[in-house]
Design a protein around this nucleic acid. Structure first.
Lengths: 205, 205
DNA sequence: TTGACATATGACAACATGTCATGTTAAAAT
DNA sequence: ATTTTAACATGACATGTTGTCATATGTCAA
């Protein structure tokens, strides 16, 4: 998280810095992104940057945090509306994530993010992922909202397993769709097919 | 790939360099690993390193390539033995991968690799993954070996989808198991449960 | 007016990478 | 035996990166 000092800055200046960061992270992977470049573009002296953020990762994860919060709100809103139906919830959440990440001014940024995402970054971006870094324990909260009656679950562990599989598949689909620039229609169709396979199984009966 | 010059080197010197690289990549992520450190440990002059490898990535992927080749051999051996049974093949391949990556002198290296793996590196490590960089088209060859009679597939696309899902799940399980240091028994049990869910579906009937 | 504290800032140390001019070696050609 | 040619070796160098720190500046309270 940024320091308090950062939040004391005039909103204008905050925006300038974040915008410069977005720009740099859009055209370079996290590792190749240069703090030098960001501070140059935002006209922030080097020393000041380190007053505001601990390091590059701190800044990067703060940018992702914004999206995570949105996804989290959506997740709980949708699962309430869908009365705990896990598959319906994932389908609607996925669509909402695709829409959000495909917005004109976001798309290239997320393409870059997804192309280089690793397991640490995953957890920072998606609320349904079990994670040690999860102060409110969103994960457990979410599990509690799921209607287990239609699922093959006996224990809490079983449920975690299923959610973990859905999450992994969702992310994989997202990453792939941004890598090959699928249209929304293509990726939704593909995602729905996968959900069907998950629901009913892959083996013929 | 390394240059010819590298392969002209005495086997001894090759080994020293690769061993130093393994060591560096075991204790640092790819991005944090330092060529400086590697050449220092291997007593190779800076200029020489660049005679042998194009850059750090070249060296890294060459190390992974060794494992990929082994996995590829295993894959085709197992699927032949299992007469095209996709789920049996994945189960046995997974066990073989876990065994290999858990070997005493490999374990920490792969823990590091998996902790930081991204979609590009995935493709370099696992033969069943569809990839532009796949000269022999291993992926297509593998699809051809699968017994489709027991699977819910109509088209080649359906099959690719299923294999993609299995692959993604496999990798995810592997990454997680190395991140939290599961025992072989734990990870195999978890993997088998997941395969069951994939086969028969998650929804109660 | 004077502390006390938060904030601003650029020079600097430490380290990384990739290149290149200059040697060296060895084999082939004369 | 001498010369030519090509492959290989090497470390200094240019250019970049990051995080810190001594010093300067502003601001509020005593």
């Amino acid at each position: 998280m940024p320091t308090q000092t950062f939040f004391h800055l005039p909103k204008e200046k905050q925006k300038t810095l974040l915008k410069a960061a977005m720009h740099e992270f859009t055209y370079h992977s996290f590792e190749n992104a240069s703090i030098n470049q960001i501070i140059k573009e935002a006209s922030i002296p080097r020393g000041s940057f380190y007053m505001y953020f601990h390091d590059k990762e701190d800044l990067y994860f703060y940018l992702l945090e914004q999206s995570r919060e949105l996804f989290e709100k959506q997740l709980f809103m949708i699962i309430a509306e869908e009365k705990g139906d896990l598959f319906q919830t994932f389908e609607r959440l996925f669509e909402s994530i695709v829409d959000y990440c495909s917005k004109k001014n976001h798309r290239l940024f997320f393409k870059q993010v997804f192309a280089n995402i690793n397991s640490r970054a995953e957890k920072r971006l998606f609320p349904m992922k079990k994670d040690v870094f999860d102060p409110q324990n969103t994960h457990k909260l979410f599990l509690g909202q799921i209607d287990k009656s239609k699922l093959k679950v006996q224990t809490e562990e079983d449920l975690e397993e299923i959610v973990g599989l859905l999450f992994g598949m969702t992310l994989h689909t997202l990453v792939h769709s941004f890598a090959v620039d699928e249209t929304k229609e293509e990726v939704m169709r593909s995602y729905q097919r996968k959900l069907e396979l998950f629901k009913y199984g892959m083996e013929k009966r």
